[in-house]
Write a protein that binds this DNA or RNA. Structure first.
Lengths: 151, 151
DNA sequence: CACTTCCCTACTGAATGCGTAGGAAATCTC
DNA sequence: GAGATTTCCTACGCATTCAGTAGGGAAGTG
């Protein structure tokens, strides 16, 4: 289960946009600030535009800005816009699977896993992350020192 | 975030082994029962052996069996044995990352996400799944009908 | 011995991930 | 309108991973 570079970059770019709310921000500026290859980032911002998350403006005073308030955009929205579905098993989404025999209860397990990922990523908005105030139920998880160790 | 075919196959194979506890089970039998390409499965079982999860026996009465009791093997154990770390961002594990500016709180978010995935996969044993009795805190998630829909 | 089953190495073919290059289209200032 | 700037689009490249196959050697059994 990996978070792709696209998803990581996309969220970081969106966070910059959430923080800079007056004028539009150029792709080049975002790329430099977050150390992201700028032509690669352009494609990512384009995906976000198609997904209705950001609006763009061309020309010398152009750039990108969020299409909605940062409180109304979840991290899940961003990830879905640039990668597909949040969680998949062998490339298909859990409900399309079917198992037999002692593996029957594997399906509900994958579903539970996905629900849990959703709970986190849909429950956190760009405003939450940008302000540094994660919701309680997420912050609590990150405050556990054990969560930071690699077993 | 995708569960690879390797991981899915590995867990299903492990569940068969958990259910069939008297004699060893041949790779071919598992492959047929779960509809998995059997040469591919052989490699997966080998990884699990190297990971200390299964023991193998050659010869005509040979096959594979679990190296520990099914209650003592978590789904996370299986996934880690065949893929690497459970969760990674751009291929590296969360604690090795570092973000600047408004993205600073993204790191604790990834950590919280990983902790949550761990909680599920480490908290469920092969015995749980094979018996069809998922732990309460997992079953509750899967019982929510909303968890089964694709938004 | 013959037979079975695991074990190991190598290979392939397709897809994906990550990024680059170059230019066309829009928008602004002068 | 000229020129500058920035987004937008298509295509390409390259390495890695994924999923699976092939063939044979090593160990165990009768």
């Amino acid at each position: 289960m990996r978070i792709s570079a696209r998803a990581d970059y996309a969220v970081r770019a969106a966070l910059l946009l959430a923080a800079e709310q007056d004028g539009p921000l150029k792709a080049e500026a975002i790329a430099e600030a977050q150390d992201i290859p700028h032509k690669f980032l352009e494609g990512i911002l384009n995906d976000m535009r198609r997904g209705g998350l950001v609006a763009s403006q061309r020309g010398v005073y152009g750039g990108y800005r969020l299409a909605r308030a940062p409180e109304d955009i979840s991290v899940a929205d961003v990830v879905r816009a640039v990668d597909g579905p949040l969680v998949s098993v062998r490339g298909v989404r859990p409900p399309e699977l079917s198992y037999g025999g002692p593996a029957e209860s594997l399906l509900p397990l994958w579903v539970a896993l996905r629900a849990n990922v959703r709970r986190i990523l849909e429950g956190v908005s760009l405003a939450d992350v940008a302000s540094g105030h994660l919701p309680e139920f997420v912050g609590a998880l990150a405050d556990d020192p054990a969560a930071w160790s690699n077993p």
